[in-house]
Design a protein around this nucleic acid. Structure first.
Lengths: 202, 202
DNA sequence: ATAATTTTACCTACCGTTCAGTAAGGAGAA
DNA sequence: TTCTCCTTACTGAACGGTAGGTAAAATTAT
């Protein structure tokens, strides 16, 4: 065997399924089928469904936190906040699977996110808090809760993919009206970043 | 029967369950139990599970669209946008069940939202588009996609309840740090409204 | 041979759905 | 009044299907 470990295969395919169907509707049998193995083989590698989910989700949160810390160290507060939004945004936009899983978790009360992931998430918000604090020192930002700013950044970006078909359906009802309402935004990250930074400035 | 109709009871209890557990995890048997009837009684009143879900969700969307149109007719563009955000926000904040269902739908690709609801949703965004257009005429707003603004308004508000426990867990990792990060925002609607309007102004 | 991996066969539990049946009550005719 | 007929509102049992999970045998790799 050209050692493509089955474990990785399982993580890949189940990740896709978790993102497309959600945790509950993802059946291990269908995942096994896609991997070309049986359901029991999954149970050899993972204790249970929840453990598999963890194995899918944790590395993603870690990679995100890593990137955030890497790219938001230099420059003034405005530049750093811009970098924060862009780094977060590009990670979400270019990882639609992770985005979808994150969206479901948020809608779900985040009950199934393990503490390990929460810790990674807290790394990013700590970084955001630092940037906002720097902005206050530089007298360019008004004081505001980092959680609120985080939500203003993350939730629209996360929903960007998941609301696509919703926007299209809504557009079907509005397209005959006066205003042309395009349901797609090419450069949502830049648009959002500009608006949030402007909204935050003194 | 002089008593409260069972049909309403079913809608109430299932609505709570749909919002707490989601569509899939809501079992009709548990709903029936809470209503003090049998599962079959639900099938007497509703064709199937999907029809019950519709009966729960449609009136809410209609009520929302109604209120939006009612409260955003008068004033200048800034006042009307402020009214739009407040009306939408207060509806969501004071209807956490609807909020949770909406959040799940967004995370889920909105596959289970009936067209009837989409139409109601399009009413609200048409109204938003009008307001933004008025703002451009008044030379106070920059041109921007109504869909983007809608997302900036709706997704943070919707996630406000559902992220509560997430924020608390994240705060547990950050509270010992330099910045005190409060996971609660009392007046999120007003905060959000101010920032979005500022971000949109010329 | 031994350890790692995977399959076969199976269990239990639950879910949405259907369906036959029934108690209660009103409408209309006798 | 009383008998018949029909409707409303519901029950209980069962069905087909699928899900997560497990024990043990079989296969493969070292």
């Amino acid at each position: 065997m050209a050692k493509v470990s089955k474990k990785k295969l399982i993580i890949e395919h189940s990740g896709k399924s978790f993102s497309e169907l959600g945790y509950e509707l993802t059946s291990l049998e269908s995942v096994a089928k896609k991997c070309g193995i049986t359901k029991s083989a999954i149970y050899y590698h993972f204790k249970d469904k929840a453990a598999l989910y963890k194995a899918v989700v944790c590395p993603e949160f870690t990679a995100l936190a890593q990137k955030i810390e890497e790219y938001t160290q230099t420059g003034n507060a405005v530049q750093r906040l811009n970098a924060y939004i862009h780094t977060f945004g590009e990670f979400l936009i270019s990882n639609p699977d992770f985005s979808a899983i994150f969206a479901r978790e948020i809608a779900n009360g985040s009950k199934t996110i393990p503490d390990e992931c929460i810790e990674q998430l807290s790394r990013t918000i700590k970084q955001l808090a630092k940037i906002l604090h720097a902005g206050i020192s530089e007298r360019v930002f008004e004081e505001e809760s980092p959680f609120l700013i985080q939500m203003m950044i993350v939730t629209p970006l996360i929903s960007c993919h998941t609301t696509k078909s919703l926007r299209e359906r809504v557009a079907n009802f509005t397209q005959s009206e006066t205003l042309p309402l395009e349901p797609e935004f090419e450069n949502i990250i830049e648009l959002l970043s500009k608006k949030i930074i402007k909204g935050l400035q003194c």
